[in-house]
Write a protein that binds this DNA or RNA. Structure first.
Lengths: 118, 118
DNA sequence: CGAACATTTGAACAGTTGTTCAAATGTTCA
DNA sequence: TGAACATTTGAACAACTGTTCAAATGTTCG
């Protein structure tokens, strides 16, 4: 919790609005899960992976070759993306093919890129 | 760059697709800027701030009181959000009121929350 | 089985991040 | 001007993150 000396004087806060907003604030778990979702999207490498998987299902080596990175680094990031449920995988022999989990991921990437291109 | 020993054997990569995707990969700056945008959205505190500002323009102390955090912590996060162009501010006397920079931020927050609520 | 290769895993490392604390800066008003 | 309060700033700190490296695990095929 917060040290009282750090809070503003109560009579100076716009009490009505603050009280209203505080009661309607979504539960912690909502913000926690949403943060996890955006965390998965906030790294350049993961964005490149998602962009590439939006073009085509790809195996780890394909991604490593496409992005000029080590298979190990790619695999670690794919693991992060999988835990966050942004990608799915299927094994085909020695290779493991990854693809986007759903259209939400695709549209979120596109919305993000579009926003930065303004 | 990548140590050659770390890359997969060239003949095993799906060359055609990889080459096609590699040539169409957006520029680095696109991914960098998009990552900055999502980075601003990937923290719980910042998501709460954005949610609150979506309800109403608020000053630093209002936000601190609403979220139960110190004004200093809130101010630091608002600074981060302002640098990323997600919020704007106006001074009114001793107080500084913050609000969302544009509808993109609002819709992105809503899309993120909606995604986590499935 | 054993060789070859794709992938995963875990430790280690430097770099980044969010909060706290103390101090500085802005602004109002008596 | 000086007191009072809102906000900002910078240093410090622990916690977290992304990559590398070496080693382990999966899978195919001779």
């Amino acid at each position: 919790m917060v040290n009282p000396s750090e809070t503003c004087e109560l009579h100076n806060v716009h009490e009505d609005i603050v009280e209203d907003i505080r009661t309607r604030l979504p539960e912690d778990v909502i913000f926690a899960k949403t943060a996890v979702f955006f965390k998965a999207l906030c790294d350049e490498t993961r964005l490149r992976i998602i962009w590439a998987l939006d073009q085509s299902e790809l195996c780890v080596c394909d991604l490593a070759d496409t992005l000029g990175m080590s298979p190990s680094a790619i695999s670690h990031q794919l693991s992060t993306l999988k835990i966050a449920n942004l990608v799915t995988s299927r094994r085909a022999g020695k290779e493991v093919f990854y693809s986007l989990a759903d259209d939400h991921v695709r549209s979120m990437l596109e919305a993000g890129i579009e926003h930065t291109c303004e």
